[in-house]
Simulated scan of single mutants.
Amino acid sequence: MANWEGINEFVAVVETQSFTAAAERLSTSVANISRRVNALEDKLAVKLFVRTTRKVSVTEVGATYYQHCKPLVEGLMLAELAITQLQASPTGRIKMTAPVTFGEQVLATLMHQFLLQYPQIELDLVLSNQKMDLVQEGYDLAVRLGKLDDSSMMARKLLDRHMFVCASPSYLAKHGEPHTLSELKRHQCLRGSTKYWRFEDKGTERLIHVDGRVQCNSGYALVDAALKGLGIVQLPDYYVQPYLETGELVEVLTPYRGDQEGIWALYPQNRMLTSKIRTLIDYLSEALN
């Protein structure tokens, strides 16, 4: 009779290429992962991994064994999913990541409300502007902004965001308002981590090089600089909309405003879309619109 012991651990190590990452994914210890994989190797009388101090590599026989084990593990996950979806309320831990500012300003409040609505859910929310490896680091879900470049992920658009170029009335009174993209080179442009701003010119996307005295990777800091008249800024609506409504900031270059950019929920293709994740994505989509 087949023995499942060690198979989940083996598959996790292959997919994460790390005993530590596999332990994090399965919420267990590295020692337990190592013990179960060693026991599996002893039972099969083969070497499944080549271990060095720097990395873990699957052997040829290990890769073959993985191809057979993976569908079995997915089948077991599907069986568990079928049971989970019969439950009245989603349960379990959700590990997700999102950009810092959007997470602090928008997402965190929604997630807290979600936890109140589903008291059997546990949340591990990591706010970072770095793009995490969802598979290797064991994330169930990521919220990403703008254009997507990772085709290995499944994605669902939650809403659209608008990018605005704006400045304070005091800055415009002193330096004048730009009316063409070429005029930006004469202005102080408050830029973040990129040297280019994106515009749309007669249906064509254009990337315009910008420069200025201030560079910062914080949207809040750039808004403050714009409010104080230090320059022109390009930021998403959730940074500047309140100040545009009060007149503390004024939109410029409106004819060149680009298309809306998406805010997306991403999850790995090789993860089952469990009831808790599906419920969360549905909740975010409704709450954000």
Rank of each mutant, 00 (worst) to 15 (best):
D42H: 14
S29W: 04
A88C: 05
L40G: 02
Y220P: 04
I277C: 02
A22P: 01
G92R: 06
F102A: 02
I83G: 11
Q215V: 14
S152I: 10
S275P: 07
Y256P: 00
R271E: 05
L76F: 10
L115W: 03
E183P: 01
M132W: 11
A2V: 15
L184P: 00
Q105E: 12
E41H: 08
P178L: 07
Q234I: 08
T59Q: 01
S275D: 10
S89L: 11
C216D: 12
G231W: 02
K157I: 03
I232E: 04
T84C: 10
H162C: 10
Y256G: 01
Y256Q: 03
W4V: 10
N289Q: 15
L190A: 04
V46A: 08
T64S: 13
S18F: 01
V37M: 03
Y118I: 06
M96E: 02
S57G: 10
S128A: 08
L273P: 02
G75Y: 08
Q130M: 12
T59W: 01
T194I: 12
D201T: 13
D149M: 14
R186N: 14
K174E: 14
R36M: 10
R257F: 03
G258I: 05
Q260Y: 09
A82V: 14
C69Y: 05
A31D: 14
M163Q: 06
T194C: 08
P268I: 09
H179K: 15
H112W: 12
P268N: 13
L230T: 13
V233W: 00
L115T: 05
L145R: 06
L230K: 15
Q130Y: 11
T101Q: 14
Y65M: 11
D259V: 12
A98R: 03
L266E: 03
I281T: 05
Y196C: 11
L249K: 00
E15F: 05
L159D: 08
S34H: 05
F164I: 10
G203W: 06
R144F: 06
K147W: 10
F164Y: 13
E74N: 14
V135A: 04
P178F: 04
E5F: 12
Y118C: 04
T194F: 08
T52E: 04
R144D: 06
L40W: 03
I277S: 02
L230E: 15
S182E: 14
N270F: 07
Q260C: 13
K276I: 08
Q234G: 07
Y283M: 00
V252R: 01
Q269M: 10
H162V: 15
F49Q: 00
Y243M: 03
M96N: 02
L280K: 01
V30P: 05
A287I: 03
L159E: 11
L125P: 00
T64G: 14
V50L: 05
G203Q: 10
R35M: 13
A88M: 08
G146N: 02
L40N: 02
V210F: 00
L222M: 09
E24N: 15
D160W: 12
T28D: 04
L86A: 09
P99V: 02
A12L: 06
P169G: 05
G146S: 05
G258F: 03
M153W: 11
